[in-house]
Amino acid sequence: MRITQGCFSFLPDLTDDQIRSQAQYIIDKGWAVNLEYTDDPHPRNTYWEMWDLPMFDVKDAAAVMIELDACRKAHGDRFYIRLSGFDASHGWESVRISFIVGRPKTEPGFRLLRQEGPGRRQIYATQAYAADRPEGDRYKS
C-alpha cells in the first residue's frame, strides 16, 4: 500500500527538481520550510521528528536541498520524510502546504482493529504493522 498523506502522494514520487520547484514556491510565498521524518506514519501522528529548525531566512531552494540530502543520508529509506511550508502571518499561523518527499521502499500499511461495542457499535483503531517494532527498526532499508 501507499500512504497518501500530503499534497502530492497520488503523483509519481517527486524528482529532486520537482521538489526544488515546490520548495522555491514555499520560499517565494515567504513561508518557512520545514523538514520532518518519522517511522510512525499513523494519520493522527501530528508530531514527526524535526530535522533541525524550520528554515526561515533562505532565499533559494538549493538550501532546502542541502538539508534534504543530509536528512536522507541520516534516515534514508527507513523513514518517511515530509516537507512543509509554515505561514506565520495573522489569521493562518499554521502549515500551508505539506508533502511527502521520502518513504520506505515497502509500506506494509495499517491493520484496522475492531472492538465490539453495544448497539452494533464498533470501536475502531488503526495500527501500523511496522509499529510493532521499536522506533528506528520498523522499516528495512
Binding site: 497518501t4 494519520p43 475502531y124
Partner: peptide
C-alpha cells in the same frame, strides 16, 4: 451512520489518511 463510519475507518486504514 454505522455503515458510513465503518467505511470511513476502513478507508482510513487503507490509505493512512484522515
Amino acid at each position: 451512520f454505522l455503515y458510513c463510519m465503518e467505511a470511513v475507518n476502513k478507508a482510513q486504514a487503507a490509505t493512512g489518511e484522515v
